[in-house]
């Protein structure tokens, strides 16, 4: 039974990890806490549902399209909220609030359009489960873990093998110097949000496949926030570790302590980890720049 619980924890954690990476890319590169990530998660799930149900597109195609939509919406959100704030030279912390408001607004719109209907895709993405001795692993989980790893590899390829990736990394070290070198900050930031939105969309579409499509799906962003920070600053792999860790702690405390009090245990433990290792599990300690 313990092995089964471990599998449960890893499968939940891999979901959190995928959401956390999208959150982490914006945070690590731009230093912005982007709660509108929650909006893209919810959109990823709902668009896949709308496309596959009302337009009767094949589910896989709907999911790909909805990921694209989520990415574009994320870039659009940057354009209409962060961009003007940046132009006015506002501290980036103002985006903290703007992104919270965008998150609220998108959630309200989704609730209005969907009439708060809880639903799911017209069919299951992949059936069946792999059974080893007493342990059951749904195939969907394996697939999702695979997609999570693939998206991450693709992301590193973009960051480390392309020109825009170089520009993004350049901006994350020193955005002013990057501008002086002729890098267009609007393009870089827009691309970063696009990437984050794509990841959020993938996460949302898969969450929809695994659990259900419902309006509060976006609230996962708070868990993603935790995973990103506990995993470690400046490290995307850290976010994955963070996600897995939260999934495991949550599952273990649900199973062996008391599920009703488990948020207190999970989040208490996470704060303790942050106190012991303020840089996160995989992060490097960044000293203040004076």
């Amino acid at each position: 039974m313990f092995v089964q619980q471990l599998v449960n924890g890893i499968s939940l954690g891999s979901m959190y990890a995928l959401l956390a990476v999208g959150f982490a890319i914006v945070y690590n590169i731009l230093g912005i806490v982007n709660f509108s990530h929650g909006a893209t998660i919810a959109l990823g799930a709902y668009c896949a549902y709308w496309l596959s149900t009302y337009l009767r597109l094949p589910l896989e195609l709907s999911m790909v399209l909805s990921v694209t939509i989520a990415g574009l919406v994320s870039a659009l959100i940057e354009r209409i909220t962060l961009h003007p704030l940046r132009r006015k030279g506002q501290p980036q912390i103002f985006f903290f609030i703007a992104s919270l408001t965008v998150f609220n607004l998108v959630t309200a719109i989704i609730i209005y359009v969907s009439k708060a209907n809880i639903t799911s895709y017209p069919r299951t993405l992949i059936y069946g489960s792999i059974r080893m001795a007493n342990v059951i692993v749904p195939k969907l989980d394996v697939l999702m873990l695979g997609i999570a790893v693939l998206s991450l590899l693709a992301l590193s390829a973009v960051l480390y093998k392309t020109k825009i990736g170089l520009a993004i990394r350049c901006c994350s070290y020193d955005s002013r110097a990057a501008q002086l070198m002729g890098i267009n900050p609007d393009l870089v930031i827009g691309t970063t949000f696009l990437l984050a939105g794509l990841l959020g969309g993938i996460g949302g579409a898969l969450l929809g496949a695994k659990y259900a499509v419902y309006p509060e799906l976006g609230d996962m962003v708070y868990r993603a926030f935790f995973a990103c920070m506990v995993g470690g600053l400046g490290s995307l792999t850290g976010a994955i570790f963070g996600g897995l860790l939260i999934g495991l702690i949550e599952t273990i405390s649900n199973a062996y302590i008391n599920a009703a009090i488990s948020p207190a245990i999970t989040f208490g433990l996470l704060v303790v980890i942050l106190l012991v290792r303020p840089q996160g599990i995989a992060g490097k300690l960044v000293e203040d720049k004076i």
Partner: peptide, 19 residues
Amino acid sequence: VEYAAGTVDYRAHLTQIKA
């Protein structure tokens, strides 16, 4: 088995129930 608000993954609880 009792769980807290906002849970989406019930497999930990259900594994326990199954036993």
